[in-house]
């Protein structure tokens, strides 16, 4: 597995979506959430998906997670058809979504304990992840004793504990204040580098997408489809000063232009 970077042409992608579409039946008629989505994601790649509210980006993520079924086209993860939870994806929600009756360690171990009784190795792995995000001293605390940013970092550990191929994040820091958010973005970059995961980040923050991703996928308003893909050539190590560079500004502006046209 390569640590990061787009896989060479010809290698089978980890995620392969072709002509993917999703139609919801509603009482007032069908609603097309996604249409003709073509997207390939290489093993180890970090892809951000940006788009206006209601463009179906959360639907796309839930299809990748196997929580929702597409209604057109087809999609595979690791060569296996999507459609049901594969157990090979870790998910981070907008809220931390920790279980208040479990302590931090048990929360991190949840994906493991839903499958089998946690072994000493599992616990060691969970504690290692908590150490990576600086929360090893909080393993026996209840989620209610942690700040919002700390809770969200626990949620990231939980998404990684069963060593899934795919890390799915749905606007994970949208509910946090700007400073916590910036610090967590630095941390997500580090976690991604250290764990060599394939990551898909849904966000409506263009700077966040450019800061974290190797490739930003721009989606149109409903019905959502991919209107642009922007490669972000900043390497794998991202630091906050990156955001002040002209290149960062130019890439952000290029992505933002897609939304300004719609607003005019």
């Amino acid at each position: 597995m390569t640590a990061a970077g787009t896989a060479p042409e010809g290698t089978a992608p980890l995620v392969d979506l072709r002509g993917l579409g999703k139609v919801y039946p509603t009482r007032t008629g069908d609603v097309t959430a996604l249409t003709g989505v073509d997207l390939q994601i290489a093993d180890g790649e970090f892809v951000a998906v940006v788009g206006p509210s209601g463009c179906g980006k959360t639907t796309l993520l839930k299809i990748l997670a196997g929580l929702e079924q597409h209604t057109a086209g087809h999609g595979t993860l690791h060569g296996t058809d999507l459609g049901r939870p594969s157990g090979d994806a870790g998910m981070v929600f907008q809220k931390a979504t920790l279980l208040p009756w479990l302590d931090v360690l048990a929360n991190v171990l949840l994906p493991v304990t839903l499958d089998h009784r946690a072994t000493a190795a599992d616990r060691e792995k969970a504690l290692g992840l908590l150490r990576m995000v600086g929360l090893e001293d909080f393993a026996t605390k209840r989620p209610g004793e942690l700040s919002g940013g700390m809770q969200q970092r626990v949620a990231i550990c939980r998404a990684l504990v069963h060593d899934p191929s795919l890390l799915l994040m749905d606007e994970p820091f949208g509910a946090l204040d700007a400073m916590t958010r910036d610090a967590l973005n630095v941390e997500v970059n580090r976690v991604w580098r250290e764990t060599h995961k394939t990551a898909v980040l849904i966000t409506h923050s263009i700077p966040e997408a450019v800061f974290l991703a190797e490739r930003v996928v721009v989606m149109s308003p409903r019905p959502g489809r991919v209107v642009d893909e922007v490669a972000i050539p900043f390497g794998t190590v991202r630091t906050p000063d990156l955001m002040g560079t002209p290149e960062f500004g130019a890439l952000s502006a290029r992505i933002r232009r897609h939304f300004e046209v719609k607003a005019a």
Binding site: G87, F93, T97, W101, L114, H162
Partner: peptide, 25 residues
């Protein structure tokens, strides 16, 4: 909570696990 339900489902929880380890507590 919907997200908690999705969390259990994405990790392959059985209906029994969802009942006992999520809904009841």
């Amino acid at each position: 909570d919907r997200d908690q339900l999705d969390l259990f489902r994405v990790n392959g929880a059985t209906p029994w696990q969802i009942r006992v380890r999520l809904m009841l507590p």
